[in-house]
Amino acid sequence: MITPAVPKSWYLPSKPHKFCPGCGHGIVLKALGETIDELEIQDNTIFGCDIGCSLLSWDFFACDSTQTHHGRTTPVMVGIKRARPELITIGYMGDGGGYSIGSQHLLNAAVRNEKVTLILVNNTNYGMTGGQMAPTTLPGQKTETTPYGRDPELTGYPTRGPEFLAELTPDSAYIARATVSKYKQLKRFLRNALRNQIEGNGFSFVEVLSTCPTNWRTNAQQTWRFLEDEMEPYFPVGELKSPFGKGGDK
């Protein structure tokens, strides 16, 4: 079988997409689109997007989709899933929406083991609003609200989301961190996160390390270097919790 270049679940009238050149969102959404196709869940998937750059995905898919508010994607998806458990709910958010303004929703949804799949794109800043410090901004990293570099004495250390979520969830949850620099692994993690919901096991969460050359003010080479050399050492990539076990996800 020849895999088509464009996932079937993409909404073509909204292409080309609206993300900046070099942004990692397109990679995440391509992997997600291919995964939706492979799992054949397009018709009963509800895609919900946060406010921020993730909002630009609101009409990305030919799936029923809904916009929420900044940080509130998690409760909206929980409400949909609780109302109609047969639907596959995918919440898509950034690091600010998930780890800052929506953190108590994220934390409590995890504790309750809500059977939703949440994808959080970590690009270490608030992109849409012009590049402010995010919970994930690295120590020393310059942003619009840390113009001299993030000082952990003043603003703490970057949030490691999957690590704290793994602590809060039972074994039936799926928690992973992927990166746009490892596409096959990213797809595998997204597939597991959706499979975990389809099988009715529990909460599923994938953080994806991503790129923001616009606000990082980096060229292509510097962008990739920041992702692989700065972000990945601080935010280790891998599955932190999986009901499928090692190798059970193939």
Binding site: M77, V78, G79
Partner: peptide, 11 residues
């Protein structure tokens, strides 16, 4: 917001 989600789903 959970009410918002549930009513969107027709509940």
């Amino acid at each position: 917001f959970t009410v918002c989600g549930a009513v969107q789903a027709g509940t």
